[in-house]
Nucleic acid binder design. Structure first.
Length: 117
DNA sequence: AAGTTGACCAAAA
DNA sequence: GTTTTGGCCAACT
């Protein structure tokens, strides 16, 4: 069903470690093309599996939470991230200098989601 | 098939 | 700080 780009995006997002966050652009870069950021947003909107794909850990490039987060709103997104130990600058901005995932140690094999055949 | 839209981003003005 | 512009991909008219 999903294209390979979406599959790659979902696998990457599902492998973002607890307590860390990523940006749409970063996920896009890991998926192969830094300019796929928009597609990443679309992929999250079409999120096929809430339980395995932590879309709340994907933020804007400036660390701001998703305005259109459909899973309980930004307040819910804030609560989840705060509970995971993510550092905030203010209510709707994450401190990326402290909580952005480390690309070097990122391990795609930790992915919790796999494309169905 | 072709045009529009969107949970984006970086650069430019 | 804001707005505009160009660029990518997939889903939806």
């Amino acid at each position: 069903m999903s294209g390979k780009t979406f599959d790659a995006i979902y696998q990457i997002v599902s492998a973002i470690p607890r307590g860390k966050v990523a940006t749409y652009g970063l996920v896009a870069a890991l998926a192969g093309n830094p300019r796929l950021a928009r597609a990443v947003g679309n992929a999250m909107h079409a999120n096929p599996d809430h339980s395995r794909i932590p879309c709340h850990r994907v933020l804007h490039a400036d660390g701001k939470l998703s305005v259109a987060f459909k899973f309980g709103g930004i307040n819910r997104q804030h609560d989840i991230l705060a509970d995971e130990g993510v550092h905030f600058i203010d209510y709707e901005h994450v401190d990326l200098s402290r909580s952005l995932m480390d690309v070097e140690s990122f391990d795609i094999s930790l992915a919790m989601w796999k494309p169905e055949t």
